[in-house]
């Protein structure tokens, strides 16, 4: 599903480029990327997601070159094949919870399907929030809705950027379980980027990023 090769990224004004280990993930794989701040975890995630263009190296998604596409093509391919959970949940504030999920499906090119959206929200314990305003959700609920949004269009790859950094142990477990269950249900690959050592024991596969590698 995902393959990266010799990825490097040099920020403007930086002396050296960040170099990243090659990643290889098949459908259904789980991978934890661990690293302290400054090791470029988020940069790697954004390179994988095509939100940045690598200085060197390439990203291949579902067997096709991804990092070489132009901006608009990358946006559309990302929307179709990836679901991303960000550290802080953000939504289109003018839309309800259900509409935010419908928007994710529509941008990914999926037919609107109320049953899928309602079923997913049920599963996440948010069935009653279908028509709620996103501003009215609690932080925990927002994180769960953003997980729902990342999987609602059945992507092949789920990316999560520090999904648990703001949560206590109980919630960390809950969120991680949700992510893994959803990935398993849809057969997607799950890539989690974090500095949260608590996750190390909970996920079998992990790669540690070292500073100035």
């Amino acid at each position: 599903m995902l393959k990266t090769q010799g990825l490097r990224y040099q920020y403007a004004g930086a002396d050296t480029a960040l170099a990243f280990p090659d990643l290889h993930m098949d459908k259904g794989d789980e991978l934890l990327l661990l690293g302290a701040s400054g090791t470029g975890k988020t940069t790697l995630l954004h390179l994988v997601a095509g939100m940045r263009t690598p200085t060197a190296g390439s990203v291949t998604l579902a067997g096709a070159p991804f990092s070489a596409l132009n901006t608009a093509e990358r946006d559309q391919t990302r929307g179709k094949h990836m679901g991303i959970v960000f550290q802080t949940a953000h939504f289109v504030r003018s839309l309800t919870v259900g509409e935010n999920l419908a928007l994710a499906r529509s941008l990914a090119g999926c037919a609107p399907d109320a049953a899928v959206i309602e079923g997913l929200l049920q599963e996440l314990g948010l069935g009653h929030k279908l028509n709620a305003r996103v501003d009215a959700l609690s932080v925990g609920e927002q994180q769960r809705v953003s997980i729902a949004r990342a999987v609602v269009h059945g992507p092949g790859l789920i990316l999560a950027d520090e999904p648990t950094s703001a949560l206590d142990d109980a919630n960390t477990d809950a969120v991680l379980t949700l992510l893994r269950n959803q990935a398993k249900r849809t057969g997607a690959a799950l890539l989690v980027v974090t500095h949260d050592q608590r996750l190390k024991d909970r996920m079998s596969q992990h790669v540690e990023l070292n500073p100035t590698s």
Binding site: D75, K80, L107, A108, R149
Partner: peptide, 17 residues
Amino acid sequence: DRRYELALLRTMGAPPR
């Protein structure tokens, strides 16, 4: 006010246009 929201739309598959 909505920079994050617009960036989010991009990650969800909306091209710049």
